[in-house]
Amino acid sequence: MNRAALAAGPETVSRALTHHRRDVRGTVFTVALFSCLIVAMAILATLLYTVISGSLPAWRDRSLTTFITSQMSADPHVAGIWQAFYGSLTLMVFTAVIAFPLGVSAAIYLEEYASDNRATRFINANIRNLAGVPSIVYGLLGLAIFVKLLGSITGPAVEGRSVIAGGLTLGLLTLPIVIITTAEALRAVPNALREAAYGVGSTQWQVIRHHILPVGAPGILTGTILSLGRAFGEAAPLLLVGGITTFFSVGDASFLEALQGRFSAMPVLVFSWSRLPQEEFRALTAALIVVMLVVLLLINGTAIYLRNRFEKGT
């Protein structure tokens, strides 16, 4: 082969090898594959554009703060999202309090203690299946147990349709995802660390407490916060355990009374508002979705921030 061809680089070589024929099918195929991705991106962009532009009329006569702090109402001119906003935040705290300790503990058992026997494999398979159970089925579980069976404890005044019932339901829904992501984070901790700690005479708990958990923390935290983000967007299970979609007063109930009281959540409100016939509610729903997406962005942003920060540290 002459020098000029070599200098011209691989393009020329490949053209020489293919007898100067263009690979039409290959090009079409590449373009088709790339356009699949572009379509997916375009859908995302259209979705965001539709929601944001649709929400503009709502911001004309109210600010973000009045929208968030106003009470829910059937009148589109004064309707706000306060109960739903507050309800979603309470539910998130509740979900985290239940799913985080339980999920992390379960993952520690499965990754650090359990030997590979039939029982462990069963528990693992069971957790993977639980993660695949549709969220509405968890709603049924919550309805049967937390609302009907334990209603006198979870919410005596509201037939069990309380914050506690909703929070427990979301907690159980999130649990398998927390276990799976935590187990992944623990698996990523290098074995050398465990062996070194045992070598100097640590007990298993000391190894976990002082070496594995600190190293696995960024992964565990990121996974847990991301799964909280998923719970934040869930509406179906909350509909079943009685998320309120119309006006109700929060009042000045004590903390426990408030937990036993009625609740709403932003996704539930999106559902009920988007079905209302008045045109004004279209803009309000879009505005509510904008608020939801901003909260989601904050949640996921925190997760990514934590991951980056910890990763720099170690």
Binding site: L47, T50, G54, E234, V270, R282, T285, I289, L296
Partner: peptide, 20 residues
């Protein structure tokens, strides 16, 4: 970006389907 799409709550897609 695909992961962002995965994180969009389903109620939002319901609204999108209905209104767009």
């Amino acid at each position: 970006t695909l992961e962002v799409l995965a994180g969009i709550p389903s109620v939002v897609l319901g609204f999108f389907a209905l209104t767009f």
